Simulated scan of single mutants.
Amino acid sequence: MYGRKWGIGVLVLFICFALALGLFFRSTARIRDMVEPLAPHGGEAPRKRIVLVSQELDNPYWRAVEEGARAAGEEYGMDIEYTGPYRINPEEQLRLLDQAIASRADGILIQGTGDPGSRALVSKAAEKGIPVVAVDADEPDSGRVAYTGTDNEAAGAAMAELVAEASGGAGRVGILAGTLRADSQRLRVEGFRRALARYPELTVAGVRTTDISRLQAANEAEVFLSMEPPVRFIVSFSSLDGLGALDAAERLRQPSELPEIFAFDDLPDTVAAISQGLIRASVVQEPRQMGREAVVLLQARLNGQPVPEKRYTPIRILQEPPTAVTKGGGRS
């Protein structure tokens, strides 16, 4: 009797085990069916995740960089993750860069800030095998793979030639720059001064920084416009500075006494002011091309190919009447 009960118990256990095993295989098949559609087909490599850390999230200039990066990313099977502070905030840029490194992105695009903390984080990324390309402003001596963007020294020289042409080679010039900590702004000012040295009767009244703020640019421009002898020409090396200078000039001067203002980039208000003859000219960059070139450089590096340390994008001159002289290549 006891043996019969034991045999029945073993049989029940066997049946339960068989049922559990069947359920296991059924669940495994279901999971496989769900996962397979998500897996790459035909031997395609998984998409790389590239993080683009912008200077300011909804800035039209950086949205154009994003557009260029996304277009190239689609060609190479890359997912571009675009991020940045809502307002210009270098500390937030560094936090977002650190976050991109911690997330093990396949590649990172950044704007160089000239901050030691930025250089340290780029070096940290390099140590972890994450290639970093600087866009718009370089971050030299940081371990970044490459820089792509404007030849900023050449852009400053082009600005000097515009002033020389407009002035006849004589007069006092005030310089507005967003920040001299950034490699891009510093090189623009240096290129401007170097080229202006060919015109001994054109003198620099000073260099004032604006923290990339239109209001601050207006305040600093007022300093130039209050000088004696008067400053006849104001040059601007970040996108809001020319508009700020115009705001100050319109507050302090009659229309017939407005100084000659030279701007940077092609914000809609800048283009409108040029068409109205209120701003003389602007040196315009190509942010979409920067974004595209940055992704091209990352793709080459990820494929183990050599990449140039610097790849410059062109500038063009916007003025009224529109003559749009294009200056490509060169050094930044």
Results as ranks from 00 to 15, higher is better:
Y2H: 13
Y2F: 12
R4E: 14
R4M: 07
K5I: 13
W6Y: 07
C16S: 15
L21P: 01
L21S: 11
F24P: 00
F24L: 14
A29N: 13
R30N: 11
D33A: 15
M34V: 03
A39R: 15
G43A: 14
A45S: 14
R49W: 03
R49V: 05
S54L: 08
S54D: 00
N59S: 15
R63M: 14
R63E: 10
A64D: 07
A64V: 05
A64K: 02
V65E: 00
E66R: 13
E66F: 05
G68E: 07
G68L: 00
R70E: 10
A72K: 10
G73F: 02
G73N: 05
E75Y: 05
Y76F: 14
G77I: 07
M78Y: 13
T83S: 04
P90S: 02
P90M: 03
E91A: 07
E92L: 12
L94R: 12
L96G: 00
D98H: 09
Q99S: 11
A100W: 06
I101W: 00
A102R: 15
S103A: 06
R104F: 12
I108E: 01
T113G: 01
G114H: 10
G114N: 05
G114I: 02
G117Y: 04
S118K: 01
L121E: 08
V122R: 06
K124G: 00
A125N: 01
A126M: 04
G129K: 14
I130G: 03
V132E: 02
V133A: 02
A134T: 02
P140D: 11
S142D: 04
S142M: 12
S142Q: 08
R144P: 05
V145I: 06
T148P: 02
G149H: 09
E153F: 15
G156N: 04
A158S: 10
M159T: 15
A160H: 02
E161T: 08
E161Y: 09
A164M: 10
G169Q: 08
G169L: 04
A170T: 14
G174M: 11
G174R: 08
D183S: 08
V189H: 05
L196M: 15
R198K: 14
E201S: 09
L202M: 14
T203P: 05
V204E: 10
V204Q: 01
G206W: 04
R208H: 10
R208Y: 08
R214N: 03
R214H: 02
L215V: 15
Q216A: 06
A218C: 05
A221W: 00
P229K: 01
F233V: 00
V235A: 00
L243Q: 12
L243I: 12
G244L: 07
G244M: 06
A245Q: 08
A245V: 11
L246G: 05
E250D: 06
E250L: 13
R251V: 01
Q254R: 15
P255C: 12
S256A: 14
S256E: 13
F264K: 10
D265M: 11
L267M: 13
D269T: 09
A272L: 11
I274T: 12
S275D: 14
Q276G: 09
S282Q: 10
R288D: 06
V296A: 11
V296M: 10
L297M: 09
L297C: 09
L297S: 06
L298F: 04
A300W: 02
Q305K: 07
P308E: 03
R311G: 03
R311N: 03
P314H: 12
L318N: 05
P321R: 10
P321Y: 12
P322K: 13
T323R: 14
A324P: 07
G329S: 11
S332V: 15
